[in-house]
Nucleic acid binder design. Structure first.
Length: 273
DNA sequence: AGGTCGACCTGGCAGC
DNA sequence: TGCTGCCAGGTCGACC
């Protein structure tokens, strides 16, 4: 579900609500979602106060004020395929973890498929996932030279490279497909085979699509919701993802669906070369 | 070393 | 109606 734009939308929403709020109680319906023993998880978080909400790639990082000197400083949340975090006054029957807050509100973690992970850590920068992450695609240091470096020497299909979080952080299946369509590049082409001009088009497409998706508060396909429970509207602006056999918006030829590295890829064989 | 594939899970949906 | 099989936005580890 949640790729960079969805996680960033949730981050923004939580940043407006959480800082300064203290956790008064925690209900754990699904201990398997925690990367810490449940008792330690609860002990580390009860009575702690939230600080700033950060993001790296698709990982949410909820910082905690250092009110106890040796206590862990962060709660990290990876939503994986179907996770979500909602700030709400209402109870939810599908809650997997509930954080009760000192103002009567709750932070509720939901996750239909239970593939997500929550973890209390001292230092999120040291997590193996974070240490091995590629650059943030919306940062100014993600330049054409940077992208060319990532593509060089790789015979892997360009779509698979875009999905590889070690190479670029935050792009998932939806936005990889959309960026390749916008750049007019066939997802099956070897990454190293892209010309300088094509890489430039792809770079611009990645940045503009991620920015537009954040502006639309993400893409709701099935169950993604933002931190207030609202759907994202970028689904209306998808050109290829999820549109197998439908007419291409540019040339009216049918959109193709193929499988690459075990994942669906949608593209227009006429517009993408 | 670099790439691919299945496992991890649950629930919605299509087809019979 | 009810059962079965397939599919899903991510990541990791085993394997080639």
């Amino acid at each position: 579900m949640p790729e960079l734009p969805e996680v960033e939308t949730i981050r923004c929403g939580l940043q407006r609500s959480l800082p300064g709020r203290r956790i008064t109680a925690i209900t754990i319906q699904r201990p398997s979602l925690l990367n810490n023993p449940p008792r330690r998880f609860r002990r580390c978080l009860c009575n702690r106060t939230f600080g700033a909400v950060l993001r790296r790639g698709k990982l949410l990082i909820l910082s905690l004020l250092p009110d106890e000197p040796a206590a862990p400083r962060y709660l990290t949340v990876h939503l994986r395929m179907s996770g979500g975090l909602t700030y709400t006054a209402q109870a939810r029957s599908d809650a997997r973890v509930i954080f009760k807050l000192d103002n009567g509100m709750q932070l509720i973690y939901t996750d239909q498929r239970c593939l997500g992970q929550l973890e209390v850590v001292d230092n999120w920068q040291c997590l193996p996932l974070v240490r091995s992450m590629g650059p943030e695609p919306l940062e100014p240091n993600f330049t054409l030279a940077c992208l060319m470096q990532i593509l060089s020497g790789s015979g892997t299909p360009i779509k698979n490279v875009l999905l590889d979080q070690h190479k670029i952080a935050g792009i998932g299946n939806i936005y990889a497909a959309e960026a390749l369509f916008a750049a007019g590049i066939d997802p099956r082409r070897p990454a190293a085979g892209l010309s300088h001009a094509e890489a430039g088009k792809l770079l611009a497409a990645i940045k503009s699509i991620l920015r537009a998706a954040i502006h639309c508060r993400g893409t709701t396909f099935n169950n993604y919701r933002d931190s207030r429970g609202k759907q994202g509207s970028f689904v209306r602006r998808l050109n290829v993802y999820g549109r197998a056999a439908a007419a291409c918006m540019q040339c009216a030829q049918p959109i193709q669906r193929i499988v690459q590295a075990g994942r669906s890829t949608y593209f227009c064989a006429c517009c993408q070369r």
